[in-house]
Design a protein around this nucleic acid. Structure first.
Length: 469
DNA sequence: CAGGATGATTCCCA
DNA sequence: TGGGAATCATCCTG
């Protein structure tokens, strides 16, 4: 039989066996007695216990009076110390073992992650480091600075919320702990509460609150993960390119249909061009790898379903032809303005370059519109030019499938172009294709070029991918 | 909301 | 290493 059971039995049986020494503690001699009167002491303790037992059955006023009486009782300190000791030995010893909890591994993980993400810990290093990591992971360099700052802003927001909540939590924890401690201290006057018990209660409160803290950390981590996945998972942030960007890429693709393999330089140029025309928001700039992706997708999808893309191909071919025609007209005007009779040495070089490009355009136009033979022009390296003459099945292109608007443009320009036909002789070269493209030219062209698609070469503003051999 | 379009990723190959 | 092919995930449109 343990101490607790014994004392309970004692309370029930109105008697306290071995009352003089409990747990090694001697009760002080009862007031008004000489300390040898055993029956008197028994009577005293019995009285106290009886009063305690009956106190709940009484009215509040009576209970208060009783309580006061008990508090003033000479035996009270001794009884409390005994009861405290018994409590220590029983209940507390059982729970005592649980108090020294090892650090929760999950909490440690959460702490580490928050630290790594820059949510917890010093503000400067963590946040920017995480943002930099985010930028690096997303594959972008300088082009995603907008997203980068957006990510940082959101992370800062999370950080602020986290710290605010953490502060609130700590404040609440402290307040509650103080409250409970005060309550227990107050109660310790009427019931046996040892300082150790108060300490233990504080520990329990802290553990309970730390579970709330864990929830806070957990949701913060989740928020960071979501943020990261939003910003780092490229698939998530997929945005369609702007119409202008798609047009630029399509124009290049269809104007190089025989060999749609832009070189690195061409890709860079295209990326730059697209960026210039579409930089109007988050993710609107296009990187070289995006250009590569685009061409990769385009080639495969075009190849898979040529019929579907035929209309688009014609459209862009016509468009390019119009551009070329405009360029040709401009070139003619330019060449006339800079004729030898009005020399302009400062711009001569530029003009010559421009004229050459324009001549290429005119050449293309002439080739596409007015001939049906691939042998009409001396352009041995031009896959596009070759394609523009020759259909897949060997039928020569007659020009009838070009849009009427193009035809009219061409008609009005025919005269002008014929005047500058001399430039054509200078065009024994074409530097549009990457080495890969040349290598793959036959395969791609044979498999993919529809009979009705013309493929005029690029105009003055177009992108060159010069790796010709 | 279903289905097509489209940008991105992954795996494999030359 | 770049490209083809398959696939995923998201966007867009009717």
């Amino acid at each position: 039989m343990d101490d607790q059971a014994r004392i309970m039995q004692s309370i029930g049986g109105v008697s306290l066996a071995g009352h003089s020494v409990q747990g090694g503690m001697a009760l002080p001699p009862p007031h008004g007695h000489d300390g040898t009167d055993g029956d008197g002491r028994k009577q005293d303790i019995g009285d106290i216990l009886h009063q305690i037992m009956t106190i709940t059955d009484q009215s509040l006023d009576e209970a208060q009076a009783k309580k006061h009486g008990l508090n003033c009782h000479r035996m009270k300190p001794a009884l409390f110390s005994v009861l405290c000791e018994i409590k220590e030995k029983t209940g507390l010893s059982i729970r005592g073992a649980q108090e020294e909890d090892p650090p929760d591994p999950q909490l440690m993980r959460l702490d580490n992650m928050l630290l790594a993400e820059g949510v917890a810990g010093p503000e400067k290093g963590g946040g920017s480091a995480a943002a930099a990591a985010a930028a690096a992971a997303s594959g972008g360099a300088a082009d995603n600075s907008i997203e980068h700052s957006d990510y940082r802003a959101k992370l800062t927001q999370i950080r602020q919320i986290y710290h605010t909540e953490l502060e609130k939590y700590e404040q609440a924890c402290n307040e509650f702990t103080t409250h409970v401690m005060n309550l227990l201290r107050e109660q310790s006057r009427t019931r046996p509460i040892s300082p150790k018990e108060i300490e233990r209660m504080v520990g329990i409160i802290h553990r309970k609150f730390s579970s709330i803290q864990m929830q806070l950390k957990q949701s913060t981590c989740e928020a960071v993960m979501i943020l990261r996945s939003r910003f780092l998972d490229a698939r998530r942030k997929r945005r369609n390119f702007s119409k202008q960007a798609t047009e630029i890429l399509n124009e290049y693709f269809y104007s190089h249909l025989s060999n749609p393999y832009p070189s690195e330089e061409a890709k860079e140029e295209l990326a730059k061009k697209c960026s210039i025309t579409v930089s109007q928001g988050v993710g609107s700039t296009i990187t070289v790898s995006q250009v590569s992706n685009w061409f990769g997708n385009k080639r495969i999808r075009y190849k898979k379903n040529i019929g579907k893309f035929q209309e688009e191909a014609n459209l862009y071919a016509a468009k390019t032809a119009v551009n070329a025609a405009h360029a040709a007209a401009a070139a003619v005007q330019n060449s006339q303005a800079n004729s030898p009779t009005t020399p302009n040495s400062g711009f001569q070089m530029k003009d010559e370059e421009f004229q050459l490009d324009s001549a290429e355009s005119k050449n293309t136009l002439l080739t596409n519109m007015f001939t049906g033979s691939s042998g009409s022009f001396n352009l041995p390296n031009s896959g596009d030019m070759f394609l523009s003459m020759q259909s897949l099945n060997g039928d020569s292109y007659q020009g009838a499938q070009v849009g009427a608007n193009v035809q009219s443009q061409v008609d009005t320009l025919r005269h002008v172009i014929s005047q500058t036909a001399g430039y054509n002789d200078a065009l024994g070269r074409n530097t549009m294709y990457s080495s890969h493209g040349l290598h793959a030219n036959g395969g791609w062209q044979d498999a993919t070029t529809p009979s009705s698609v013309i493929s005029p070469t690029e105009g003055p503003g177009s992108v060159h991918s010069d790796t010709s051999n």
